[in-house]
Nucleic acid binder design. Structure first.
Lengths: 207, 207
DNA sequence: GCAAAAATATGAACCCGCTCATTTATGGGG
DNA sequence: CCCCATAAATGAGCGGGTTCATATTTTTGC
């Protein structure tokens, strides 16, 4: 057999298995005990490896959280865009997507809060993967704007990526407000995020 | 002499002195070594107190950073609104304010980055003081919107606080992008924040 | 097959944030 | 002026994240 990059080799396979073991162990402990209370030693033990080995798979404890959250985030984003109505007002399509993401965070709000608080400026291999996901998400938001432009709903001179960037900031702000202040999910979505998006669409100008 | 609440008493005076000593020590060390590398022991030593005493004045190391940043932030906000042109386009008045804040962070960008990253959902006595500052800032932004409404520049049906909240999210997003990615100050302000604000004012609608 | 080399894994030890049982300072009442 | 109650300060110790010298496993070259 020829060398098959990383994944195919025996070494690569064991490495993948171990990463998965660690992901599971961390996920279970974070859910059961919360992020702060979970010790890296406990994660290592449940994954059946030595303490030091953990740090060959995640740069630090934060990066472990990113390892765990990456898959959940990816699934939620995929799901959100899969179930997206083909047509309809831009506002409702955005809300459909953001609702799905909020719902994901609401399953374990404390974990979500820890994750979102660490997101800005995070580094480490798994943080990079999450950043890539976020970047792709931003482009998907821009695609929605482009489609709305084709429907004549959005002015043609608006740069889709610029609009996506603004909307993402509004989404992130709402997410922080919700997960920090712990106002209930529905209120955060309908009374905070939705009016913010409405105002971004409307603008401040007269008319 | 009657008891004068907290400030007048000898006890209260010593406490204030000590808080100031700690603030100075932390500020100098954070500047010289950075937030992460500075140990709480070092701060205590330079302030001339025991390790444990530090935590009577700040709940934890994070709260120490908030203690340090509060005054700088307050000064920058005060300064920004003092120097604000009495009239002029809303966009330029916003940019005047945000430029002043960005400039404050740019004096010690690494410290600013640490601070901004810890801001969301921070707790502790000094974090509360910073949150109060942020809340007041939000209201000042809303006041600018209200003035623009009186000038007929902004539609009367727009809720000033809603607009302020959106603009704050855009500001915070730009701040995070700048301090995380370390793109230069001028670009972050003029190529990131300004277009975002322009688009918020303009909206996405046709016309 | 077998060494030498390279990649991985190990866990004791280190560092540092934070706590808490104990000591010290302050101020009011007699 | 002294005593007691209360507030404040102390620093040794603890817990947990992270490191790194050493050991083990896997791959490579022959």
């Amino acid at each position: 057999m020829s060398k098959v990059g990383r994944e195919g080799s025996l070494r690569g396979q064991k490495k993948q298995d171990r990463r998965e073991k660690i992901r599971q162990a961390a996920w279970n402990l974070f859910r059961e005990e919360g992020y702060e209370k979970t010790t890296t030693r406990a994660v290592a033990e449940r994954a059946g490896i030595a303490t030091g080995t953990l740090f060959l798979y995640a740069r630090d404890k934060q990066d472990l959280l990113f390892l765990v959250m990456h898959d959940r985030l990816e699934e939620a984003v995929e799901d959100a865009f899969d179930g997206l109505p083909r047509r309809g007002p831009l506002l409702e399509r955005w809300m459909h997507v953001f609702r799905r993401l909020f719902r994901m965070y609401s399953e374990y709000p404390a974990l979500g809060a820890a994750f979102v608080r660490l997101l800005p400026g995070a580094s480490g291999p798994n943080a990079e993967r999450v950043n890539a996901l976020t970047f792709a998400f931003l482009h998907r938001l821009a695609a929605l704007v482009r489609e709305a432009q084709e429907q004549g709903e959005v002015a043609p001179e608006v740069l889709p990526m610029q609009a996506a960037s603004n909307v993402f900031s509004l989404y992130f702000g709402a997410l922080l407000a919700w997960l920090s202040g712990m106002l209930p999910l529905e209120l955060a979505l309908e009374e905070h995020l939705r009016p913010a998006l409405v105002l971004q669409i409307r603008g401040l100008r007269i008319g």
